[in-house]
Design a binder for these strands. Structure first.
Lengths: 337, 337
DNA sequence: TTTAACGATGTAATGGATTACAGTAATCAA
DNA sequence: TTGATTACTGTAATCCATTACATCGTTAAA
């Protein structure tokens, strides 16, 4: 293997000079530089990053913990993170935690072993205390979800406000029997969306029914959304609107309604959350709360990089704008109570 | 930072002994081992992987080149690869090439710099000659797609045979006006599927019409599938069946048909390829050729690992079984010619 | 003229783990 | 009893790039 020593020998200089040229630290006489460059070319030398990283004590790897990569919502976040870091010469390692604490712990151990320089978490299943121990020692950013007990760097939308606006919209259309399909997972966004749902209905003096609150699987699966929607559509009185905390669930609800012979939005309004591709794949196009996924990823990456670069003060909380997108799956109820 | 030296000092032994214990190379007296283990615990020592990898001259990273991670087809392949390698203590870095040769080259350079120990390619845009140079030097496996000019390790299904069976099935149903939505990309699978389509129709003495052969975008986008299907559905005579080389395209075709007022499968049969989730999201469930994605990933990973482990002889070609899954989007044509 | 500063380069230490090789004591075979 | 073998441990070289410090002309400032 060609090393910096070989290049130095070939060019008749010391390794220090080669290194200086390579890293653009310190001055090198143009003529010398030319000789070195020629030697590098001739020997087709490539610096050994194992040695460099070891010496610099950095891995140039960042870790991304995501509960489930197959979820399209994450794909754009990943793209955003990837674009920032690959420009900076970092590799991103995506770690599928499946929401299992052991898996998450295992991944975070990589930081201790100098396997990664920092981490972006899409979800956190550890206790605040255990989580804080990592956060205190290593660059860390929370994306989408975050631990409300800790003052750590995070990037997300305002889930409470976004839900409020969605429910306001439904009430504004005339809906009173508004159900929700939440999730059995433990994410903050899930809590906030449910709380905003409850608070907003209360604000309008709309009575709440437990039967109108369903919990789909932790990963928002299409199947569980469909199942829960069928439960809702067979309760009496039937809700006239269903607020789903993810588009996949909303899709399931639309299909459930169709299978039961209901029309969307004439018989029942369905709205989703996230705005992933399949909201506009078939009719009715789904009314949803759009999240700026790519931007969430980009901001997270930038925030992590400032931490890795040892900037002492960095923004802790980035809240990006959401947007209610009205499409075809929502309409006023046919019969007003 | 705690180093192996600190542990050695604490335990009153040499670094060699600690290392031997850590790596289970050579014998260590049980009592000594206990002392060392205690020291490791006490100092909460974690080996520095930067140093280890440098010394061992391995990165413990493998590279995955995929043209487009947002495509759900790849998600399961990635899961299969990930499961194998994370058990082996490797990290997988996913590189989105977007089918751009520069991006691919850039990624492969990482091998030269000892940034990764091997690579799995989902698609290759380089010339056989350039590609061979990397393959000769580094562990490499082609997954799904491969360069037919080179004898390199690859894992895939038999695309030609699979397509043949699909067309046989359509002809068996009574279809004669069979169209295809192929892709403008340059993948081998695309060529093979198209060729099998052509050959099989010829075998049945069914005349071919250029109007029945459409090419969607390189990434099989839903939109382009829908657009091309509309073109097919407005040609005269209209095809009674459309063979799509991906499920996303098939989905687009179904929606296109519905928007034009045609029923699937009564008015037009649509079949897809891959068997990703959305084939069963709504009715009609899509008839498709299933690929064992997870297994493709797993086998690729195992094949790569044997190469990394310097096994001199390893299997070059793994062909996994496909399966035609008949669902709701296919039926005999209403009117036979 | 002398001193200081600068430009350009080289020497050698450094990072942390692995491992070839050497060494010691104890045990075994003859 | 002696030589060989085994079990266990230590010393020090090694991997390759970076970089603190030293060196040596040359030029600018005093």
């Amino acid at each position: 293997m060609t090393t910096i020593k070989d290049v130095a020998q070939e060019a008749g200089v010391s390794v220090a000079t080669v290194s200086r040229l390579l890293n653009d630290t310190g001055v090198v006489h143009p003529e010398t530089a030319a000789r070195v460059t020629a030697a590098i070319q001739k020997l087709s030398y490539e610096p050994n990053l194992l040695a460099r990283n070891f010496r610099r004590s950095e891995s140039r790897v960042i870790l991304i913990l995501s509960p489930n990569i197959t979820n399209p919502y994450y794909a754009h976040i990943l793209a955003g993170i990837g674009d920032v870091f690959s420009n900076l010469g970092y590799s991103a390692v995506i770690f599928n935690t499946s929401d299992a604490p052991e898996r998450e712990r295992e991944a975070l151990e990589m930081l201790k072993r100098h396997r990664a320089d920092g981490v972006i978490l899409m979800a956190n299943t550890l206790s605040s205390q255990e989580f804080k121990e990592y956060a205190d020692q290593f660059p860390l950013v929370q994306c989408s979800e975050y631990d409300p007990n800790l003052q750590l760097a995070r990037v997300s939308i305002d889930n409470y406000l976004a839900t409020q606006e969605a429910i306001d919209y439904l009430v504004g259309l005339g809906h009173r029997r508004i159900a929700t399909i939440s999730s059995e997972n433990n994410y903050l966004s899930t809590h906030l969306r449910k709380q905003a749902y409850l608070d907003t209905l209360q604000r309008y003096n709309i009575s709440l029914s437990d039967e109108y609150i369903k919990h789909a699987s932790y990963d928002y699966s299409f199947k569980s959304g469909k199942m829960k929607a069928k439960e809702l559509l067979t309760t009496d009185p039937m809700p006239t609107a269903i607020f789903c905390i993810s588009d996949t669930l909303a899709l399931g609800a639309v299909i459930a309604a169709q299978e039961l012979g209901y029309r969307v939005p004439e018989d029942v309004t369905v709205i989703g959350f996230d705005d992933v591709e399949h909201t506009t794949m078939f009719h009715p196009f789904i009314t949803t709360v759009a999240q700026p996924c790519y931007e969430l990823g980009r901001h997270s990456a930038e925030l992590l990089f400032t931490q890795i670069s040892h900037a002492s003060d960095y923004t802790r909380e980035v809240v990006l704008p959401h947007q209610l997108i009205i499409r075809e799956s929502s309409a006023p109820p046919l019969i007003l109570d």
